[in-house]
Design a protein around this nucleic acid. Structure first.
Lengths: 265, 265
DNA sequence: CTAGAACAAATGTCTATACAACTTGCAGCA
DNA sequence: TGCTGCAAGTTGTATAGACATTTGTTCTAG
C-alpha cells in the first residue's frame, strides 16, 4: 500500500488553449503515468479533491478524466476508500481489427504478398446477398499468397464489390496494403469485422501452395468486414498453415449492470 | 429521418427512492426503447434539453445516461446536429467469456458432458509457472468428453490448482457446470480469458473418441482463464471436431482517441 | 476489553448555469 | 442567381457547490 503523493502528477502540464479539452489532457497525462509504470499497480491515487486543487480544475472535470481511465480498466475506484491502480493483466484490451500485414508485423515478422489472380466476376447468390447487390453487379476477387519472413503462411481470397472501389485493378496491390487503399483512396473507413474460425484438412492443391508437411491441418478464417456506416465491404476467406499460425482471442465475463462515465470526441 | 417526438419517452418512470441512481434508470429506460426497436435506427432523439425537461432532471444527469448508451454504441451524438439511434449491426458487443454449456445452449444445442478422468497430479514446469505454484503443489486434471445433441463434439482437458478449489472431486462434475462450482462454491469470480486457436491433424486415439470422419481436422483451443483479482484459475485445452464447430470472433478498428462518459457501479 | 456511537474521509450523485464549437437554414445582398 | 454572413439550435466542456453513501477509525460507555 503506497501513500498518496502528489509529486508524480506535477509532470502533467495543462494547455488551456489546446484543441484537446482539459479532461482529455488529464486522462492522457495520468494514463501515461499508469501505462509507463511510474504509478505502480496497487498505488493509491490522491483523493479527487486533492487532484482538483493540484490541477486547478473542478471536480466534475477531473471525474470525467478518471472515468476515461476507469473505462480502460487502468484504475478502480471504491466509494469511501479511494482509487487504486489496476494490475496490468486486468486492464481492458479490445479485440482489434488488423490487416494481415499489421498482424504479422505486430508478431515481429516480415509480411509479404504475392498476387495470384485478380478478377472481376458476377458473384454467386450468397455473396451477392451479403453485399446486397443487384443482379449483374460485380465483385473483385483477389487471390493472394501471404508470406511471413519469406515462407508461405496463408492463401487469401478477398471479395469486394466493384461498386465500392471501381478501378481497383489500377493499384499495385502487391506493394500497398489493401486496407490502406480502401481507406485512403476510396474513403471506406473500416470499423469492425466478424470472423469465423474453423479447422480443415487441406486439399492437395493447397498443400503444394503452402508447402504443407504431411498430415498438417489448415486454419480457415472467414472474415466479414463492415465500414463505419454499416455497409458490408469485404468478404474474405484466409487459409493458414495450421502448424505456423494461431488466432488469439480475449474474452471477458459478462457483468450484470453497465459501468462508468467517460467522454466522446 | 424521423421527427423528434417526446411521446415514447413518457413510458419511462423514475423512482426517486430507488437504490439505482437516476441516470441509470434513464439509461436503462431509453436502452430498452432502443434495443426493443421502439426507437428505430436513424431515429433522431429529442434534444438533451427537451429530455431534461421531460424527465425533470438536470442536463449533466441526462448526459451521464446518454454516455452509457453511447458507450454501448446504441446512440451516436454529433455536436451541432443531434443524437441518432445506431443501426443494430454497429452496436458494440464485447467478446464474452462463456463455458462450454453456455456456448452450446446459445447456439441452440443441448450440451452434455462425460467425465473420463479426474486426477490430482504434480504439474509440469510450464503449468506450474503459469499458476505460480511452489514445488509439490498439485493441480486437478479433468478430462471430459463434451457432446452436443448427443454427439461427441470436443475433448477437453482442464487444469486447476488444488489450492484454489480443495475437495473439487466431491462435486458431481458431470451434472454441474464447472464454472458454476468455481464461482458459487469457491468464490472464484472469473473475469477474463485468453484463447489461442489453432488447427491440427487428429491423433488416431482422438479420431476414435470424437468419431471423426476420415480426413477431418480438429480445432484446438488453449484457454487461460483469470479471476477478478488477476489470479490464474484455469488452463484448458479443448479439441473440437473441425467439421462440427467453429469459433466466432468480433473485432473493431482501433480509433485514435478515447470516447465518451459513462459511470461505474 | 468490547460493542456501539460518532466522526472523518473518500467517492457517488445531482443541480443550475455559462460559454464554446459546430451545423443548418435563411435572410439579405451583390 | 449565387454567395455571404448571421442567427438559432444542438451537443461539448467546464464551474462551484450540495448532499448521499460507504468505509475506516476513534472515542466513549458499559
Amino acid at each position: 500500500m503506497s501513500t498518496p503523493n502528489v509529486a508524480p502528477f506535477s509532470s502533467i502540464r495543462l494547455d488551456k488553449y489546446s484543441p484537446n479539452p482539459i479532461y482529455l489532457q488529464i486522462a492522457e497525462g495520468i494514463g501515461e503515468l499508469l501505462k509507463s509504470g511510474v504509478l505502480p499497480a496497487g498505488y493509491v491515487l490522491p483523493p479527487e479533491r486533492a487532484l482538483c486543487e493540484q490541477f486547478g480544475i473542478s471536480r466534475m472535470t477531473l471525474r470525467q478524466a478518471m472515468g476515461l481511465l476507469d473505462r480502460e480498466g487502468l484504475i478502480e475506484s471504491r466509494r469511501g476508500r479511494g482509487t487504486v491502480v489496476t494490475p496490468a493483466r486486468l486492464r481492458k484490451q479490445e479485440q482489434e481489427l488488423k490487416s494481415f500485414s499489421e498482424e504479422i508485423r505486430d508478431r515481429g515478422g516480415r509480411p509479404e504478398s504475392r498476387l495470384i489472380s485478380l478478377e472481376l466476376t458476377v458473384p454467386g447468390e450468397s455473396v451477392r446477398d451479403f453485399f446486397e447487390l443487384r443482379d449483374q453487379q460485380k465483385v473483385y476477387e483477389l487471390l493472394r499468397l501471404r508470406l511471413k519472413d519469406g515462407d508461405p503462411l496463408a492463401l487469401e481470397l478477398v471479395r469486394i464489390p466493384e461498386r465500392l472501389c471501381p478501378g481497383l485493378e489500377r493499384f499495385d496491390i502487391a506493394k500497398n496494403s489493401l486496407y490502406q487503399i480502401l481507406e485512403e483512396s476510396y474513403g471506406l473507413r473500416l470499423e469492425n469485422c466478424i470472423e469465423e474460425i474453423s479447422a480443415e484438412a487441406p486439399t492437395s492443391k493447397l498443400r503444394k501452395l503452402l508447402a504443407l508437411p504431411r498430415n498438417a491441418a489448415v486454419l480457415v478464417v472467414n472474415r466479414k468486414t463492415f465500414a463505419e456506416d454499416g455497409r458490408a465491404v469485404e468478404l474474405t476467406r484466409s487459409t493458414y498453415r495450421g502448424d505456423q499460425y494461431s488466432a488469439v482471442v480475449r474474452s471477458v465475463r459478462k457483468k450484470k449492470p453497465i459501468l462508468r462515465i467517460s467522454t466522446s470526441s
